[in-house]
């Protein structure tokens, strides 16, 4: 009988659109959403499992695609454009607000909600004060019961140590990972590869979401595209 409520996994892409993303990198960033839609169209019952949303950030952060069923006919994919600096703090604060209200909404609509998943893509160092973005990150994670699983993805000038500090949870049985572009790799290509990882993670997570199993599944290290490597939080000290 239909006693079980449907369970949804909210999946967020949070992406850097600071000035340094201009050019090929932005072009690849804009290719991510259509690629995710194509992948879902090949596995359309995942719409019964996964919701997808996009936040971009530069000087400020904006919800570009509110959490949605990507295969819904009314969804329009927004173009990403660069704007200014790199405020991690703005991104984390907006993400926290979004998660809070999205999860509340989904529950009010009668769904069970899995812990949200976040792919955070950046190509550089935060431009806000260290204490600012670290506080905002703590409010998104440690100080937030609905904290998301955070998978940072660094390309180009992203600092591995900074990115490593954004892995959440950083340890324990449900520890996440981060993905870093290998040295000498083309950053635009690296963004395309990260999109591949995001998609395979979304498919695997959606397909495995049954009773008992929960949360985010990341691809096995041997299945990663060449040019990207996975790291855990203690790889950079």
């Amino acid at each position: 009988m239909e006693s079980e409520k449907a369970k949804l996994l909210p999946f967020y892409l949070v992406i850097d659109v600071s000035a340094s993303m201009t050019g090929d990198k932005l072009e690849q960033a804009n290719a991510i959403m259509p690629a995710v839609v194509d992948a879902l169209s090949d596995a359309p019952i995942l719409s019964d499992k996964v919701r997808f949303g996009v936040i971009d950030f530069g000087t400020d952060a904006l919800v570009r695609l509110p959490l949605c069923d990507l295969l819904d006919e009314h969804v329009t994919l927004p173009p990403l454009n660069v704007r200014g600096a790199t405020s991690y703090a703005a991104a984390f604060r907006l993400l926290r607000d979004e998660i809070e209200s999205n999860v509340k909404q989904l529950k009010a609509d009668g769904f069970q909600v899995h812990r949200p998943a976040v792919f955070f893509i950046s190509d550089g160092e935060p431009t806000d004060r260290d204490a600012d973005w670290r506080d905002a990150f703590r409010d998104l994670t440690e100080n937030f019961p609905t904290y998301p699983n955070v998978v940072p993805c660094g390309v180009d000038a992203a600092n591995p140590k900074t990115m490593a500090s954004l892995i959440y949870p950083a340890s324990g049985p449900k520890a996440m990972q981060m993905y870093l572009m290998d040295h000498g790799q083309n950053p635009a290509d690296a963004i395309a590869m990260i999109a591949e990882i995001l998609i395979s993670s979304m498919l695997a997570s959606g397909q495995s979401m049954a009773q008992g199993s929960s949360g985010l599944i990341l691809p096995a290290k041997q299945d990663l595209p060449a040019g990207i490597s996975a790291h855990s939080s203690d790889d950079f000290v």
Partner: peptide, 28 residues
């Protein structure tokens, strides 16, 4: 595919479970 890329897709049983108008929109 929705992005405009041509594709050859196996007609898996899962495609029978989605709303018919959605299936048509996805080219199935």
């Amino acid at each position: 595919k929705p992005s405009g890329v041509p594709a050859r897709t196996l007609r898996e049983l899962q495609h029978l479970f989605i709303a018919p108008e959605r299936a048509v929109r996805l080219g199935m």
